[in-house]
Structures are given as C-alpha cells and as structure tokens.
Design a protein around this nucleic acid. Structure first.
Length: 946
DNA sequence: AAGGTCACG
DNA sequence: GACGTACGTGACCTTG
C-alpha cells in the first residue's frame, strides 16, 4: 500500500510572535520568560498528536528566520524598516525555541539571508511536485498564495492555524481575499502591509483591494484601467501610486527556488525520544505537559492548555486544574453516526432512550435568530457521545414545487416530545437553553429541569479571556477549548449574506450533521464542565443563583413591555426638525457645510479652522471632540460647541431610541422583547440587547420623554422598585466601615454624611465632591482620575483620598486585601462565591495591570449586587403567587431596579411583597450588616414610576 | 472592522 | 518616564 506522504512545514518564527502576544507572561523556575516557548511547545505537541491521523504528518520540519536580511532589502531599502525590535522578554526565548525543536527531535531549517516564507515556499513547491501533500502550519496571509488543490501528479497544499484549530484551503483563502490563491499576491500588493512596510496603494485596504482585483482580474489590469475610471479618490491614488503597487507586487512574491539545505526525505518523522523531551519540559517547569508525557501521551486535556500559567507558575493548588479528576474518555465526534428521525416509530424509540439516559442534550433549530419570532424547524437530542439525532419538523415548504422531505407530523411530534421535555426525571442540557425555553414555550412546552453549559462555563471561567487567549462561552469556543473539536458552523450550513438560506431549507443530511452535532457537543461539554463546579467551588452560585434564574429571565423576555408607538413617532419628528435646524446653525457658525456627525471633520473645523484650543488625543492623532471637550469650549463662549452638543443629544436619542424602539415592537405581541445575556458581563451582571433596555435615558428631561413611552396596558400601572445605593452599602459591609454602616442604619443621605466627615460641613459643593469620591472608591481610585473629575490638582486629589481613608478606616484594607487575594488566587469573589478571573493582574504593562486592579476592586462589589438582585428575581414570582398575586408581571431588570406591570388595584398589596423579597434577598446565605433600602414608585409610564 | 461617542447602572 | 487618566455594559455613526 503506497501511503500518501504528507509534509508539514512549521512557520516557527511567526508562531512565536503570535504565541507571545496571546499567552500570559509565564516564567520558568529560573525566572526566564517562557510564555511563547510554552505556546510553541504545546503547538508541536498538538501536531505530534496528529501523527496517526489520516491526514496527519509523515514528514515535518520547522522553518525559522535567521536574519532579517533578504533579497527584498536589495530592491527596497525600506523593507521591514519600521519594524520595532522584538519585546525584551521575548528575545531570550528565541534560543529556547530551538531547544524545544531539538527536544522533539525535529529537523530545523534556518538560512542566512533567506526569509522563512521563501524557504517554506520552496519546500512546499518541491514536495508538491513530488506528489506529496503539504500543510503549512501558519496563518500568515502571504503564505496563502501557496495554497492549492493539487492534482495532475501534484500534491495539495493547505495551511493549518493551530491557535484557531482551523484548516485553510482554497475556499478559506477565497473567503478571506475574495479571490483564489493565484491572485492573493495581487491583492496584497494593493493593500500593502504596514508591519513589513510594504507600501501598497495608500488608502486602499483589504476590501477595496479585493474589489479591484475581482473587477479587473489582475493587478496589472486594474492599474491599466485606472485612467478610464470615473473621477474619484481611488482613481487618483491608483494613478499616483502605481509604482508603489508594482514594487509591492515584487516584494510580496515568494521565492520558490531557494536551495534546499535538507533533503525532503530526511524530514521523515520517526518518533520522539522521550528522554530529551522530558528533560526540556522539566527544566522549564512545564509540569502539566510533563504529566501528560508520563501518562503516555494520553488524551490531551485542552483546558490545561488554556491556562498553563496557574498550574505551572503558581503551584498546583492555585489552579482548579491542579486537582482535576480524570476526565471520561470519549470517542472522536463522528457525524456519520447521527440519525435523522423521520418516523413516529423512530421518534418513540429515541424518547425511550432519552428517558433511560436521564441526562440529555437538547437543541432547537429555528427559522430566525429572535426567539420571540422564530418558528420551530426541528429538534435535536443527544444521550451520549456520538449518540444523537435530529428530528426535522418543518423542513421544505418555501419551494412549492419541491417535494417536502419525509418527517413526523409537527403537532404529533411535539405532543410526543412534551412529556420528555417536561419530565422531572430527565435533565435537559442546553447551550444557552434560555433560547430553546422561549421557542418551545410558544408551542406550549415548559422545559424543565435544565442545565446550561454556557452558564456553567461562565460560573467557572468568567474573565479568563481577558488576556486574549479566548475566554468566551459560546459553543464553538467551548468545543475548541475543552474537546479540541471544531463543530460545523451555521455559516457552513446555511451560507452567509444574500446567499443565506433558512435552516428549514437545508437538506436533511446536512441539517442532521449540524444539529445533532450541536447536541452531541453540548452533551460532552456538560460531562466535562459540570463536575468542575463542585471541585472548584462554583456550585453555590450556579445552583442557587444562575440556574434557577434562567426560566425567570426567559419569562421576563416573553413578557416584554408595551411602548407607545405614536408617542415615539412624534418624538422622532420633533427631534428631526430640531436637528435640521441645529445643523444649519452649526454650518453657519463653521462657515461651511460638513458632516457634523464626523468627529474627524468636526475636530478639524473646531481646532484647525476656527482655532479653538484643545489638545490632540488618541493613537490616531485625531482631535477629541467628546462631551467634556465641547463643554470646555462652551465655557469659553463657543456657541458652536453648544449647538453640537445639542445636535449630538438629539440625533442620539432619535437613532438609538425613538426610531429603533419603534422597529423593535413585535408585530404579534405589540410589545418590545429584549434579550438578556446571563454571561454578558464579567462581574455577573446581566446585559440586555436587541434592543438594550438597560440604557433608556433618564438623566435629562428631554431624554426622559422616551421613558414616558414605556407604558402599561389599559387598567394596569408600571411599578419600579430599586435598590438605593446598593453598591455603597455593600462596600460599607464588605470593608466593615463603621461610620458608613451607621449612616445607612440611620437612613441618612450617604453623600451628605461623607461630606460631613470629609469637610466638616455640608453644602451643595461638598456633597457633590463627596459623591464623586464615593464613586471613585467603588471603581478603584487613582489620584489622576479623581483630579480630572473634580478639576483639582493630583496632589490635592491625593490629599482627599488620604483623608477619605483616614475617616473611613477599612476601605484601604479592603482594597489591599482584595488585590492580594486576586494576585494570589487569580480571581476575585463575591459574597455569594461568584468568581471573576483577572489574568492580567500581574502584567508587566503598568496600564494593563492597573486597569485589572481597578476592575478587581470593583468586581466583588458590583458582582455581589448582581447576585442579590438575581436572588430577588428568583424568589419574586413564588412570593407573589403565595400572596395571590401570580398575575403580576415582572418585565425588566436594570442592574439595581426591577420593573413590574400590574393592575392598579394590586399596588397596595404587591408593593410590600416586592419590597420584602428585594430587601431580604441576601438572606439566609449572607447576613449583611447594613439594611438594603428599597424605593418603589408606580405610575402610568416608566418615567412616572420613578 | 475600528474608532469615537454616548445612553444606562 | 511610561500608559492614560474610574468600574461594568450595548448601539449607532462615520470612515478606511
């Protein structure tokens, strides 16, 4: 049997830079930085794991850059001229990369005066010419020129991005560049590359470059066509910079005929000697890899790779991975094992299987993204690894002439599934199962009990992505991270853009692969993640707070809130008229017409043309024109600044609220249904999208008019109940500040009390300053930040901070202890045990580190507040039902506020129930040393309820 | 797609 | 002397 040879060429140098930027700054036991080396080592490990796979490597070599000089410097002296030197803690890692390569017994190629890209090109072409397949391990866009399908005696060339675990073939290249690999060089020549200092055509980016090449077929044709183009910036640029593009074309061309220092046949993989590898791993403290080596190269646990830092540098106990139990071994995902359920008989069979399995993964497929409008198209179930099915329910139908595929009757199938989905004896596992709850609820099915892998992941790993390794909780990401598997994407199945088809039109075989795989992956993730909750102390917050919250939030989303469309439309018109008037005045004051909404143009008008003073800001070198700047100008008598501020306010209100909210009204319910994310904020807060109902204006009279459009149905009122100063109360409790606790106990105005303590006198000014300082404390204070807010010198701000700490002993200690604990353990914790991870708390970059510190000071306070209102939400409906008020509807949550709709006649009986549930929400888990104050208001609109 | 701006707690 | 000047979000607009 003539096995196909497969050469892997590892673009080592490029990988090192990427690993350096994406991994935390680890150091080995001797203090040498090894973050990039670790990343490189795990990458080689992963490749070694692929050895036995069908398309795994038979031959492999690592290609490194040896010197920065190449033929490109001869023809263009600016080539790579403005590339900064490598970061200083990366430099010592270069030799270690070579050590690592040797430890794996792999051939290494580095040649003077030849760039790694050219060497890779030469080897790839040579091997492909022999009929070998070639995989280039890199994500470098220049190398994408080499990708090709093979054939005619030639082998195929593709690429592998190990960080994203993605293959890059011809179609991926076409997707990225909009042209085939043979034209990638032409596109690159137009785009240029600021990192390599390849000029390209100034002002032409990826989109324009692709368009030009698609339209004209090649770089030369595009340049030749320039004189005939209609007058435009683009035309001018093409004409003016033609020479740059031609030079760039040469620079981006890979040299494919370099002499080959090692024969390709000598790159044959024949096993890794464990001795040298173990010695290398040992030396650099890569203990988790060492364990795997000892375990006989067993199934790699991808979670370990995610955060090696803690396991390897903070001792075994610092990390949950340290005491991880062995994970169940599952067979690889096999999509061909899935069943398409098309008969009642098979459906009954699967339902029985599910009842016996006791834990099943469920996923619904629908016609659209919005759970409140989407129609159910099919359901997938999984009871074990590779044991999954897809039940199409409403496939086909848009094409009247096509025959609909065989499927179980819609109503009949749902009637059969309902007892299973509602059975107390069967746990339904979902990934973001709130979505499925809402869809199925519209068909009369109340899914329970439930688990949610997305939320479990959040309760375990919130914040872990802050260092850029990827800490999201979406299914694809979790699958990559924990299972090392890339699921089919929705795009792959349904296409994208204009060509996108609804899921109901996907052929059943493809639909089954996609839908059943999602259920299979979810089931596996659950096996993987759920046990970690108990081990890592996440059970309390998951079981007591977040899991029970899912059906509650789902219900709130379905409830929605009524908005008065007519009122919004009237406001939109008023805003439009006023905006137009202002725009004209602004143009007159400016002496020319310009786009007021363009910060760039506005900056040029204000500071260049009109000569107002105001500094540059930001990397872009653009003038800042934000509110603070404009208000300063207004203070100097610049009328135009006032007008712009007013214009901005009105356009904002119109586009974001009065226009958008009308669009958001659901035609079936006549109400607006937001979607809450339970994993949106690192601290544990909810977030709200589509539309965001957590940022409806309230601070200005003009904005409040929008709140007036949020109304109850006839006969009802809205009731708003909010926690008063909850974060300051929690700070007083958590930092154990007697003065503050006393003030809250007595029901005093807390900012007045702060002013009294700080200045010995209370007036408007001192109260305002005290309020600013109180917030500064919650957010993690810096003298410069406070100085900027109060308009005083940093020295004076520092004096105020010192005085605050002196008057409120406990705060300083709380901050120090919180930071110490975060540095020690890697995460902060709320009073209810919710963790937020801070992987950058030890960053060498001061800004980054200080940012993390401020966030870490705030997270326990903001997070505890989030826990408390969530607990109140969970208890709210049962408490109301007990009081005979089950018809009261809970509609919205805005961090410290809950909004209800109820008959006016029930206000008197419902208010005390709501108040009690909210005030006692921390009990019995936490007995706060401050009371939680609740303020309740009611009225014919959300505005009036405040 | 990114940056700037601004709405909320 | 650097970073950039308070924590947490999401939406919209302009621009390259």
């Amino acid at each position: 049997m003539a096995d196909k040879q497969h050469l892997y060429l590892v673009d080592g140098s490029a990988y090192i830079f990427r690993a350096y930027h994406r991994l935390p700054p680890l150091t080995d036991p001797e203090g040498t930085p090894v973050g990039a080396v670790y990343g490189y080592t795990t990458m080689l490990w992963k490749l070694a794991d692929d050895l036995d796979k069908a398309d795994g490597p038979t031959h492999l070599a690592v290609v490194l850059d040896k010197s920065s000089h190449s033929f490109r410097n001869e023809i263009y002296d600016q080539y790579k001229a403005n590339r900064p030197p490598p970061p200083e803690d990366l430099v010592p890692q270069f030799p270690l990369i070579r050590d690592a390569t040797r430890a794996f017994s792999l051939p290494m190629i580095e040649e003077e005066n030849v760039e790694a890209d050219d060497m890779i090109a030469s080897y790839a072409r040579a091997a492909a010419a022999k009929g070998w397949d070639v995989t280039i391990v890199s994500s470098d866009k220049d190398l994408m020129q080499l990708v090709g399908p093979g054939g005619d005696g030639h082998g195929a060339i593709d690429m592998l991005d190990t960080m994203k675990n993605a293959r890059i073939g011809v179609s991926e290249v076409e997707e990225k560049f909009g042209v085939g690999p043979d034209l990638v060089g032409d596109v690159l020549a137009l785009m240029g590359d600021s990192v390599d200092n390849i000029p390209g055509i100034f002002g032409v980016g990826p989109k324009t470059a692709t368009k030009l090449i698609q339209e004209h077929g090649s770089l030369t044709s595009a340049l030749d066509a320039a004189p005939e183009m209609k007058k435009s910036k683009l035309k001018e640029r093409l004409l003016e910079h033609r020479a740059d593009a031609e030079l760039s074309r040469i620079l981006v061309t890979l040299k494919e005929d370099c002499p080959l220092p090692i024969a390709i046949d000598d790159m044959k993989l024949d096993g890794i000697a464990p001795g040298p590898l173990a010695a290398f791993l040992e030396k650099h403290g890569f203990t988790s890899l060492l364990r795997r080596l000892d375990a006989g190269n067993g199934s790699p646990d991808r979670a370990n790779e995610l955060n090696p830092a803690k396991a390897d540098t903070h001792g075994a106990d610092a990390s949950p991975e340290g005491n991880r139990q062995p994970l169940p071994e599952f067979p690889a995902i096999d999509r061909s094992a899935y069943e398409t359920v098309q008969t009642m008989e098979r459906l009954e069979h699967w339902i029985t299987q599910c009842e016996q399995a006791r834990e099943i993964a469920v996923d619904t497929e629908t016609s659209a993204l919005d759970a409140m409008q989407a129609d159910l198209v099919g359901v997938s179930l999984a009871t074990g690894p590779n044991h999954a099915c897809y039940i199409p329910l409403a496939h086909g139908g848009s094409d009247m002439f096509a025959e609909k595929p065989e499927q179980v009757g819609f109503d009949e199938a749902l009637a059969a599934l309902k007892p299973l989905l509602e059975s107390d004896a069967v746990l339904k596992i979902g990934q973001n199962i709130k979505y499925d709850l809402n869809v199925l609820s519209r068909y009369g099915i109340n899914v329970a009990p439930i688990d949610d892998t997305m939320i479990i992941s959040f309760d375990l790993d919130a914040g872990r992505g802050q260092d850029g390794i990827g800490g999201g909780h979406g299914m694809d990401e979790l699958s990559e991270r924990h299972l090392g598997h890339t699921p089919l994407t929705f795009k792959e199945i349904c296409g994208t853009g204009k060509k996108q088809i609804p899921f109901g039109e996907v052929p059943l075989d493809k639909a089954t692969e996609y839908a059943a795989e999602d259920a299979d992956v979810t089931w596996r993730l659950h096996q993987h993640l759920k046990p970690r909750l108990a081990i890592e102390g996440g059970s309390r917050v998951y079981e007591r707070v977040d899991r029970p919250l899912v059906p509650v939030v789902a219900m709130m989303e379905r409830n929605g809130i009524k908005v008065d469309r007519t009122r919004l439309a009237r406001l939109s018109e008023e805003f439009a008229t006023e905006t137009a008037r202002l725009e004209q005045q602004i143009h007159e004051l400016a002496g020319e017409e310009f786009t007021v909404g363009s910060p760039k143009q506005l900056g040029d008008i204000l500071f260049d043309k009109l000569g107002y003073k105001g500094g540059r800001k930001g990397k872009s070198g653009q003038f800042s024109t934000d509110q603070a700047v404009l208000e300063k100008l207004s203070g100097q008598g610049a009328d135009i600044a006032d007008k712009v501020l007013e214009w901005r306010q009105l356009t904002k209100l119109k586009s974001t609220y009065t226009d958008a909210l009308q669009q958001a009204i659901n035609p079936h319910t006549g109400r607006v249904h937001t979607s809450y994310s339970l994993v949106g904020a690192q601290t544990g807060r909810l977030s709200s999208t589509d539309p965001n109902l957590q940022n409806i204006p309230i601070r200005t009279p003009i904005g409040r008019q929008i709140r007036e459009a949020f109304v109850p149905e006839d006969g009802n009122v809205l009731l708003a109940a909010d926690y008063s100063q909850i974060e300051l109360r929690l700070a007083a409790h958590m930092a154990d500040v007697d003065t503050l606790k006393d003030a809250f106990a007595k029901g005093e105005d807390i900012h007045n009390r702060t002013a009294q303590e700080m200045y010995g006198a209370v007036d408007r000014d001192t109260r305002a300053q005290a309020k600013t300082i109180n917030f500064a404390i919650l957010y993690g204070i810096s003298r410069w930040g406070l100085a900027g807010r109060l308009g005083v010198e940093p020295d004076e701000a520092q004096a105020m901070i010192d005085r605050y700490f002196q008057r409120f002993p406990g705060i300083q200690r709380y901050i120090a202890e919180t930071l110490e604990s975060v540095r020690e353990r890697g995460y902060s914790e709320t009073l209810f045990g919710r963790k937020t991870w801070f992987p950058r708390i030890d960053s060498k970059n001061q800004a980054e580190r200080q940012g993390s510190e401020r966030a870490a000071i705030n997270a326990p306070i903001q997070g505890t507040s989030a826990d408390i209102i969530k607990r109140a939400m969970v208890r709210m409906m049962p408490a109301l039902e007990d009081a005979g008020l089950g018809h009261v509807q809970m509609l919205l949550q805005v961090h410290d506020e809950l909004v209800f709709e109820l008959p006016e006649s029930d206000v008197a009986s419902a208010s005390p129930v709501i108040e009690r549930v909210m005030a006692d929400a921390a009990l019995p888990a936490v007995d706060l040393s401050v009371p939680l104050g609740i303020e309740i208001g009611t009225g014919p609109s959300w505005d009036a309820a405040h």
